[in-house]
Every structure is written in C-alpha cells, then in structure tokens.
Computed example of a mutant assay.
Amino acid sequence: MDSKLKEVAQVFFKLGCFAFGGPAAHIAMMEDEIIEKRKWLTRDYFLDLIGTTNLIPGPNSTEMTMHCGYERAGKAGLFVAGIAFIFPATLITALLAYLYVKYGELPQVEPFIYGIKPAVLAIIASAILKLGKKAVKSTELIIIGILVLAASLLGVNEVIALLSAGVLGMLYFYLKSKTKSNFYSMSPFLLFLGINTTIAKVSTLKLFLIFLKVGAILYGSGYVLFAYLDAELVTRGLLTRAELIDAIAIGQFTPGPVLSTSTFIGYQLSGFTGALVATSGIFLPSFLFVLLLNPFIPKMQQSKILRYFLDSVNVAAVAIMLAVLFIMAKETLIEWQSIVIALLAIILTFKTKISTIWTIVIGAFSGFFLITIF
C-alpha cells in the first residue's frame, strides 16, 4: 500500500475507535489530529470543507474524513479514510447486534459513556476557539454568527440556517464591494427572518435500497435518523419501535457515526449479510457526494462571490458547533461527577498537549470510577 494511503488508514481507523460524542466532537478530534499534529491542511481550508460538507446530505463528520483522505492521498484516500473511520463502529455494532439477537439485552456501558460526554465538551470548545479565530474575519461575520447561533438555539434547521447565512452573506458582501454604501450594513439582520428479538426477514436488495434512500436524503441528528427509519421500517412491520430504539441507542454509545445503527438493524433483519448491505447502502451516497463535491471547493475559493458565500457558511458552521456545545453542556453538566470530569478535560485540553483520544479515555474511566464508587 502507498505510504500516504497507509497513513490515512491508520489515522482514521484510530479516530474511528475513539470518535464518541457526535459530529461536532468528531470534527474537533479531526482538527487536532489533521491540522494541529500532521498539518495535512491549513485551518482555513479545513473550515471551508466543514462549511460545504454541512450543506450536503449524510453524516457530516464521516464525509469530513473522506475530504481529508482525498486531500492527503487522492480518490483512493477518500475511500480508505471513509472505510477506516466507519469500520470500527460497524464491527462493534455487528458484534453487539449478534449478542442482542442471541441474548436479548445490551451490555452495561453507561458509566463509561457518562464520563465521555463531559470530556467531549472540552474538545469541542477547543476546536470552536481555533476555528472561530479563522472564521471571524469582520464585524458583519460576527453578526451573522450570532444570528445563526440564536436561530440554532431556537430550533431552526441547521441546513436552512447555513444556506440562509451563505446566500445572504454572499449578497451583502457583494453589494458592499460594489457600492461601499452603509445602507447594506443592515443586510445580515435579514438572517433572523431491552427485548427478545423476532427477526423479520427481508430481501437483501430491498434492505439495500431502503438504507440507500435514507443515506441519500438524511440531514440532521440521530433524532432525524430515527424518524426516517421509523417510517421505512416500523410502519412497514419490518421492525418494532422498541427494537428501533435499542438500535439507535447502540449507534449513540458506540464510537464513530451514529449511522452505524444501520449495521445493527441490518443484522436484526437478515443476519451478517443484512448488516453488510444496510451499512453499504446508508454510507454509499456520502462517498459519491464527497467524490463529486471535493474538486469544486478550490474553484469556489477562487471565485470572489463564492468566497463570500463560503466565509458566511463557515462562520455559521462554527456558530452551530457552539450551539451544539451549549445544548450538550446543559444536558450533561447536571451532577457534580460530570462537572468534575469536564473540569479535568478542560485542564487536559487547554493546559497540556495530550491527545484528544487520551482525553476521551481518561474521561471514560473517570466516569466509571466516579459512578461506581459514589
């Protein structure tokens, strides 16, 4: 294997083993590994990748791995990075699916997950600070970021917020560059306008097409994934809602993308073959979207008007990460144990040069000891 491909595989397999906490945390870990340590990309370009990736369907953090792999080792790097990142979650989820179908219950991993969540907050905060310094280039972009943050906290769909920020920011900066008039300085404000399982067999082709469809149109969080899968599987009688809830739970507490839920469901419906086709179906659109999108990003950077669009989308993406951080903190920091772990993670992240992966590991074991002892 080419040395660059081997490096890509190693880096993203490692990240795939420890990527807990959702897309914002995954991207924060990538920023540390790809930008800080290895310097594969500039932070500006990494930010452009984040902004554009948020505009396409699919698991954004997984698509970011594909972009980074593409930049490091070409088209082959795109596929190697994506597969390496997805593989650990898929393998772990398949194993858990086997145990679930055989024994009808999930393993007790809550104490470890309890410790990971507050540790992830510090990692996300660090990435927001670094990316924010690059994204905030003017007062107008600060205003756009604040408005997107407010919109996100009020529940506005993140894709709508990003597109609105991009289009309105692009129009504003274009008009400003043409007229130099103070009239348009108000334009950014327009932005505000456990169970024994009965396996229901289904053909592998049908299963593949169901998950291909979901992967091609999915935007948003695990809750959106739940809604899509509920419509595609539960209403058709292929899965009970209780089984779907367990599958989503597996996707939430295993590392990597929550879409590894597809592996679990595929196994429930058609064994290991089902796990393979469901996983392939839901992730295949992401590989194709990134393959088509990546070559256009340098051209977008060179276009003056599209540069305005990217700058506005980038600051909006950082604002959405900040909103995610706020919501996660509100939901996580409710007991003294989680606050202690968060403070420890802040010290490790901001006062030492320890890897984000070790911060995750230390957080997990801290959670286990604090919960089991106290």
Rank of each mutant, 00 (worst) to 15 (best):
E7Y: 12
A76D: 05
K201N: 14
L193K: 03
I146Y: 04
L168M: 14
G132Y: 06
Y100K: 12
G51I: 03
K206V: 02
Y228G: 10
L191A: 07
S177L: 01
I320T: 07
G82P: 07
L238C: 08
E331C: 00
V324N: 04
N294K: 13
I123Y: 02
T53I: 15
D311W: 00
K304L: 11
V318S: 01
L193M: 14
K14N: 14
A122Y: 01
N314E: 05
K351C: 12
A151D: 12
I86G: 02
P257Y: 01
A249P: 00
L78N: 07
L147K: 02
A9G: 08
M29R: 03
F192Y: 13
K14T: 15
G266L: 06
Y184H: 01
T356M: 12
V258I: 15
V258C: 05
G281I: 04
A151K: 12
L96Y: 06
G69F: 05
K351L: 15
S286K: 09
K14I: 15
K137C: 01
T235W: 03
T90I: 12
A73F: 09
A81N: 01
A151Q: 11
S152K: 03
I339P: 00
K39S: 13
L218Q: 08
G132W: 04
Y223F: 14
S177I: 02
L259I: 11
F46N: 05
V318Q: 03
T356Y: 10
W358Y: 15
M186S: 11
N54T: 08
D32F: 13
K134S: 15
V101W: 00
I282N: 03
E158R: 07
A275L: 03
I327E: 11
A329M: 13
A216I: 06
G256L: 02
M321E: 03
L175I: 06
Y98R: 13
L171Q: 03
N196W: 07
K6T: 14
I34W: 04
V224A: 12
K178E: 10
F272Q: 11
C17L: 15
L288G: 04
I305F: 02
T197Y: 08
T263V: 10
V290D: 05
P255H: 07
S286F: 06
I56A: 07
A278M: 06
G155Q: 12
G256Q: 05
Q337L: 02
L269G: 08
A345Q: 03
V156G: 07
A319S: 08
V224F: 09
K14A: 15
V202K: 13
I347K: 11
S270R: 13
V101T: 12
Y98T: 10
